[in-house]
């Protein structure tokens, strides 16, 4: 039984199986509300970053510190992970082939961890160069905005792990499916935020 209301999430819970449609819809709408609240948080961090761009106070500025190559590859990795998560949702929706669902989740997890590793390396290089957040208002703003996204990715990765365990324990039951859908929204949302970071922080930074 498919409820037309549910189609808007595009992922159609459980393909065409029975599921508590009302609960799924409430849960997913609720998660959208959470994401929008989170988006406000990021928007404000961006606004603060914008106002603090000039506040370098003699410390290393964006052009000197940002490694555009590294940021570019991070973008590619995260974008690909967004696609692989989409493939996992796709597999879940049509017949729920466990092999594909889990496989694509694992690929997404690996890509997410790769992203985190690269980002941690970037930060380590910056800190080694003396570009630490306590040097200037600009670096403070940078080290608030970008690591906040990073922390969200950490949360996303641990959520994937939890979901993998749940798939192993319960199979694809209703609650697992709803949570995979929410996690999907979260993961795609993080990619959207990263696009903004890549444009506003990195591309703008090296342009200056």
């Amino acid at each position: 039984m498919t409820d037309p209301q549910l189609r808007h999430v595009g992922l159609k819970v459980g393909g065409f199986e029975a599921i508590d449609v009302e609960e799924a819809e409430t849960g997913i709408f609720g998660f959208w509300v959470f994401l929008m609240s989170d988006a406000i948080l990021f928007a404000l961090l961006f606004a603060v970053y914008g106002t603090q761009l000039a506040a370098t106070a003699g410390a290393p500025g964006p052009a000197a510190e940002f490694k555009i190559d590294s940021a570019f590859w991070e973008t590619m990795v995260l974008l690909l992970s967004s696609f692989t998560y989409g493939m996992s949702s796709f597999a879940m929706k049509y017949g729920g082939q466990l092999r594909w669902v889990v496989g694509m989740l694992l690929v997404t997890l690996v890509l997410g961890l790769t992203f985190l590793g690269m980002e941690a390396n970037d930060f380590a290089v910056m800190i080694h160069d003396g570009a630490t957040p306590d040097r200037s208002g600009f670096l403070s703003a940078f080290f608030a905005l970008v690591p906040t996204h990073g922390l969200h990715v950490v949360a996303g990765c641990s959520w994937i792990v939890v979901m993998l365990v749940q798939v192993a324990a319960f199979g694809l039951d209703d609650r697992v499916k709803i949570n995979l859908l929410r996690l999907g929204l979260f993961w795609h949302f993080l990619d959207v935020i990263w696009i903004a970071i890549f444009s506003v922080v990195y591309l703008q930074g090296v342009m200056r």
């Binding site: 603090q52 506040a55 370098t56 106070a57 957040p133 403070s140 608030a144």
Partner: peptide, 17 residues
């Protein structure tokens, strides 16, 4: 962050505002 990690968002010096 300012108080615990020495960031400079709202301090008087080093670009805080």
């Amino acid at each position: 962050l300012d108080r615990y990690l020495g960031y400079h968002f709202f301090t008087n010096d080093l670009g805080g505002n």
